[in-house]
Nucleic acid binder design. Structure first.
Length: 803
DNA sequence: AGCACGCCGACT
DNA sequence: GTCGGCGTGCTC
């Protein structure tokens, strides 16, 4: 077995297969499947993943592996298999699938340098010698971008310079410098007596180690003795002390203390839900549970106790939470229950912190991981449970390749380990609920809030009516009255502005011109804090014009309601209210999200104003009012799930009110009060919504009745875009079953991004066993054009967003 | 993806 | 005659 099959880090159609390499004698016992290696590939060096070992290869002229990058496999057999599955499932390159399962820090960094070949320095032209200065190597990038690139190239050909390729880890393990004495206290004392009288600091240092012989970090030592590193160095050279680097973890929760919490007594409903889960855990059986529990029904406690059962068996658990609700509040609950056994993975961590959390899992130092989507790949080897909280959240689907859905990955892994999966939500996706009804998943229901309080009372306000009665503000009479009332009672309110698809655009009041991005077919968004207009798709920026570029009128201004504008209006109508605003602008700094929430929790504000990000996970006892300023902004998006999304969001945000002793109220403002998703969310009637929406989905051949694939074609040339999309549509229609539906070509909802036109083709089908093959054939056919990047074809199986 | 190889036009 | 444009094909 001295040959390794390797997947190389070259994401391209032609290299999307295994390449064989000979394992050098000295690493025969070392190199195993699942390790990263550095291999020669053509003229350069690349990173690769060993996927298998064999003793024979069809290829005659094998090259040697240059060196391993790991000491032990970083992907176990299960994850390697999962990689194969993911490759198929997401129709991506194998290498992309493997890399998606690992923290970004483990992706290779490449460096290309140009070196002087030994003894040849004199033969180089003086100009080149001068550019090298006293160095022996220069970065290739600097050389090729400099003015003398061809001169260098010539010398490479002459054999006086050589090109070298390096593959490195993106990141290293973090270390601290540790100082420890090499000698016994007695010997140190002796040395102290021989030191010259003016070496005062050295004396102090020795004295320190005579009293504390144990190792200490350099930083702490210098602070305690008030010495400089030079002093330490001289004692090191005298052989009294030694410096060494000790590997440490970057701990994002370093300075926080978590108080141990104990399991709560479950309500009857909770206990009834937990029991079947524990049965499956006990017997190591696979099952997917759908835990359907109204907001505030205590799903988290069920999760916590299920995890505890898994840990009692010595197994591990993965807890997935949507990115936006992965707040310190959430993390705290898990750390309080399971202490040091918990690793946390989310996008707020630095690359290094994520890497360290990953290593804690890999080394089996933790038993539980709480994290966002990618934590589903946590390298556990004895997985006992996967939980997906807020199962309906669309952020569980990765929108870049590999376009995987964490729910599918979780189920796949749970099958491998023969362990249960819990999908939890107050508003499950239609797909999941339909499966539960068909007993594909097992349905567990929590129908009551833990405090036995009723769900909050909801009022729907018709904003058209408000307008008719002369109220042109963004607050209805009712919402204003209730806000004032809470202010007087010293209770708290949450206001949500549903901004998606409705941001502030700039329009001329005289001629109606809306200012669009020059590169994309979408209006620019106005940003008040620096008075510029910005494109959210390509990053284009422009100053706000003082008059209309079309008709030169001065009446050009921004429209739409941003959170900033709401804040200003609040200050006018309720000048005494203390408001905390949470949106992308106020939460982009690290930790600001947490700081704002803490401030609100401590009662430092009366009103929390924000976008969708406040809809989830907030759990403060003093919130008795929730206001939704415009419920219907995303109802009219060109997406078959827009009703479902609206229903989910409204139900979730309503659930923020009255979770504890004080009863809650909700005011929903809308221009379409008669829409069923608004009406039914006000009645908190999921079951009826489900029936209604299912009926419509069946009518229009959408999930869960049909599967959907979205193909988006983009090209700089409009005609080319249309014609390729047309060919693709025709190709598929002619090959698919008669009851499958192929729609297109149609322009994408955003028909141009970054000067590339976008067209799409939508496939709806019930059963198409060969669809994957057809799609691969299509990609193959356009491979040349896509490789040159003129043409882009993206295939999204089960898309969550139809743009 | 890179990179070499190779085949044509416009220059010292 | 050579330099350099980028089309083509390969990487164990």
């Amino acid at each position: 077995m001295d040959i390794a099959s390797v997947i190389v880090d070259v994401p391209a159609k032609q290299t999307d297969r295994e390449f064989d390499y000979r394992i050098p004698e000295k690493w025969k016992q070392v190199i195993k499947p699942g390790m990263r290696v550095i291999v020669p590939f053509g003229p350069r060096m690349v990173q690769g993943f060993v996927t298998g070992l064999k003793s024979k290869s069809d290829f005659a002229k094998l090259r040697n592996i240059k060196e391993p990058m790991d000491l032990e496999p970083i992907l176990n057999d299960e994850l390697l298999k999962l990689g194969d599955w993911l490759t198929k499932e997401a129709m991506c390159f194998k290498i992309s699938a493997l890399q998606a399962m690992l923290p970004a820090a483990m992706k290779a960094k490449y460096e290309k340098v140009i070196n002087i070949i030994e003894d040849k320095k004199e033969q180089l032209p003086p100009l080149i010698q001068k550019l090298f200065g006293k160095h022996d190597s220069l970065s290739w990038k600097d050389v090729i971008e400099g003015e003398h690139a061809s001169l260098f190239q010539k010398e490479v050909q002459n054999g006086n310079l050589e090109l070298m390729y390096y593959v490195k880890n993106r990141l290293n393990k973090k270390t601290v410098r540790i100082i420890k004495p090499l000698l016994s206290p007695e010997e140190l004392k002796e040395m102290a007596s021989t030191l010259s009288g003016n070496a005062k600091k050295q004396q102090e240092l020795l004295q320190y180690f005579i009293e504390h012989p144990e190792p200490v970090s350099l930083k702490e030592l210098l602070e305690m003795v008030n010495a400089s590193s030079g002093t330490v160095k001289s004692l090191v050279s005298k052989g009294a002390l030694v410096e060494l680097d000790q590997e440490i973890y970057r701990d994002p929760y370093e300075n926080r203390v978590f108080e141990k919490s104990n399991p709560f007594t479950l309500t009857d409903e909770q206990a009834a839900a937990l029991k079947p889960i524990q049965e499956k855990i006990k017997h190591d059986e696979h099952e997917v549970f759908l835990l359907y529990g109204v907001t505030g029904s205590g799903k988290t406690e069920v999760y916590l106790q299920a995890i505890a059962s898994v840990m009692d068996k010595g197994k591990e658990a993965i807890m997935l939470v949507p990115e936006i609700s992965l707040t310190p509040q959430t993390v705290k609950r898990f750390k309080e229950r399971f202490g040091e056994q918990v690793a946390v993975m989310h996008s707020g961590l630095s690359v290094g912190e994520k890497y360290d959390e990953w290593r804690k899992i890999h080394r089996k130092e933790v038993k539980v991981v709480v994290g966002a989507r990618s934590a589903v790949f946590a390298p556990f080897e004895n997985l006992g449970l996967v939980i997906i909280d807020e199962e309906h959240e669309s952020s569980y689907k990765q929108e870049e390749t590999p376009r995987y859905h964490a729910r599918d990955v979780a189920i796949q892994r749970a099958k491998s380990y023969s362990c249960p999966v819990i999908l939890g939500s107050a508003t499950p996706t239609l797909e999941s609920f339909a499966r539960a009804k068909k007993n594909v998943y097992q349905l567990l229901t929590l129908s009551q809030r833990m405090n036995k309080n009723a769900l909050p009372a909801v009022d729907i306000v018709d904003m058209r009516e408000e307008l008719r009665t002369g109220n042109r503000s963004m607050f209805s009479e009712l919402l204003f009255t209730k806000l004032k009332d809470r202010l007087e009672k010293g209770q708290q309110a949450v206001l949500m502005l549903n901004k998606r698809g409705h941001s502030s655009f700039v329009m001329c009041r005289s001629c109606g011109l809306v200012i669009n991005c020059p590169n994309c077919d979408i209006s620019l968004t106005y940003h008040r804090f620096n008075d510029i207009m910005k494109c959210h798709y390509c990053g284009f920026e422009e100053g706000m014009p003082s008059d209309c570029p079309e008709c030169a009128s001065e009446h050009i201004r921004f429209f739409g309601t941003g959170t900033q504008k709401v804040e200003e209006e609040l200050a006018k109508i309720l000048p005494d209210a203390r408001v905390i605003r949470m949106d992308v602008d106020t939460t982009n700094k690290k930790g600001s999200h947490e700081r704002l929430l803490n401030a609100f929790g401590e009662g430092k504000a009366d009103i929390l104003l924000g976008t969708q990000m406040i809809a989830k996970g907030l759990d403060f006892p003093n919130i008795t009012l929730v206001g939704v300023l415009s419920a219907d902004t995303m109802l009219h998006l060109p997406d078959f799930r827009s009703s479902e999304k609206t229903f989910q969001l409204l139900t979730q945000v309503s659930g923020r009110a009255g979770r504890h002793q004080l009863p809650g109220e909700v005011v929903i403002q809308t221009y379409t009060p008669e829409h069923y998703s608004i009406e039914l969310s006000a009645m908190q009637d999921y079951d009826f919504f489900f029936e209604r929406e299912m009926y419509l989905r069946r009518q229009s051949h959408y999930p869960p009745y049909y599967y959907v694939v979205l193909i988006t074609v983009s090209h700089e040339d409009l005609m080319k875009t249309v014609s390729v999309t047309d060919k693709i549509t025709n190709y598929l229609s002619s090959r698919l079953n008669r009851d499958s539906i192929v729609l297109g070509p149609v322009a994408s909802p955003i028909s141009r991004i970054n000067n590339r036109y976008r067209y799409q083709c939508l496939i709806k089908y019930k059963r198409e066993p060969d669809l994957n093959q057809h799609l691969r054939t299509l990609l193959e056919h356009y491979q040349k054009e896509t490789a040159q990047n003129h043409l882009q074809i993206s295939i999204d199986l089960n898309p969550q967003i139809m743009m």
